[in-house]
Design a protein around this nucleic acid. Structure first.
Lengths: 227, 227
DNA sequence: ACAATGAGTGTACAACTGTACACACTAAGA
DNA sequence: TCTTAGTGTGTACAGTTGTACACTCATTGT
């Protein structure tokens, strides 16, 4: 005895979970069939149309769900109140933990950034971009790296999240019970992010000067090439 | 009047190019059908089996071709003899140029790292890893960053190439004739790599000490969590 | 209490899929 | 020169695909 709107929400969720399950089992989202997904959701193929017009539309709904997960992760991380001396390794650990906790959604995300429909790719890029922006906001609020300009801070944020997210597939591809491998990835990733922030702390007026010099040399070279 | 082995090689190439063409037009490799690929290669479906057992096998052949392209890029970059003062921006420009020159292969690569079969993913990771190793060898030969240990140098190489390759999909998704957007990506990517190397130049004994401190704090936190 | 809304079902069909089999035709080797 | 090997073709078939149409039946709002 469930209300009609609940029933609808339940089936909708079942379809989304069905698609995710298939992805988690190794299929690529863009090679799924509507019938497969419907069957996995415990529903007849035609019922699919009561919820989504397309598999593309379902994909965008999954992208939304992934965005929600990201927001949840951010909130959790903030609540935990990371200590300054271990902020980077804590964040990386946090991320790795969530990838293992929600492998299907992260696998889907990884697939979609490079392989989804154009709309899908944009949606995923937006989610990650939002995540990076939030991180930059936090860094500013905490007064970390105060000497860096706004655009450079943005660049830094994107670099950091791109680096962390770049390890996703590798984590997911590990066989189960290989905690030592996970540990290795975690350490390498922490090192990488730490190196990035070390670079950022030197990314001040001095390096700006160097940058301009380099840019000039670059333009010169380009010019001589076209001649 | 072509020899039999030539004919075979020609058709094989046609099949591979057909698959790449479909990928370049927006399909995901893992959603291609054998018949589609055969038609695009100008051959009847059954003829496919004379060259590949599977679409997977064709995919691995394409991964090989991508590896060849990477080696070509490396050789070209070395021949050009990059100047020390603009080495980073030159390398990035070089990469961006090749992505635009071979969009299909790079699109295929981007798709395959996160979305191919397990064998495919591993093949692509190996190709990129080899590329990173070559880069590290060059850095060592040129005496750049002599104070960094072997494993850290490896980490650095992987970070650098992951950063550059991370821009691939974004470049490929730009509409044609948007040179200014390309320029923006090129600049951002150059900045990122420069920041990474800036961080690496400080990645010495001093930062190693800081790293150990952080690791200790991390262990402490973990312990208290499990209690 | 009753009509209506709408989630889920069953049947149907044309298009497409991978692949098995028998065949043609041409280059290679005797 | 004649046989052989091997690339490419044509036909065939069973399974899967997306989706249209007509339907049941429970939950809703009156």
């Amino acid at each position: 005895m469930v209300s009609q709107v609940d029933r609808k929400l339940i089936t909708r969720k079942a379809l989304m979970d069905g698609a995710l399950a298939l992805v988690a089992e190794g299929s690529h989202y863009s090679s799924l069939s509507l019938r497969e997904v419907a069957k996995r959701g415990g529903v007849v193929p035609n019922a699919f149309y009561r919820h989504f017009k397309d598999l593309d539309e379902l994909g965008l709904a999954l992208a939304d769900e992934f965005g929600l997960l990201l927001r949840l992760i951010m909130r959790q991380a903030r609540l935990q109140g990371l200590a300054a001396d271990s902020m980077i390794s804590d964040s990386v650990n946090f991320y790795v933990e969530y990838v293992q906790k929600e492998p299907a959604l992260f696998r889907f995300m990884a697939q979609s950034i490079t392989g989804g429909s154009p709309a899908m790719r944009e949606a995923m890029r937006n989610e990650l971009g939002h995540f990076a922006n939030e991180m930059v906001t936090d860094l500013n609020r905490l007064g970390i790296l105060p000497n860096i300009s706004g655009t450079d801070m943005n660049m830094l944020g994107h670099l950091a999240i791109q680096t962390v997210f770049g390890n996703t597939t590798e984590i997911l591809d590990l066989p189960e019970n290989s905690a030592n491998m996970i540990e290795a990835i975690r350490e390498r990733c922490t090192k990488q992010v730490r190196l990035i922030f070390l670079g950022a702390s030197d990314w001040d007026a001095k390096s700006e000067k160097q940058q301009k010099l380099d840019a000039k040399a670059n333009r010169k070279k380009k010019k001589s090439k076209t001649e």
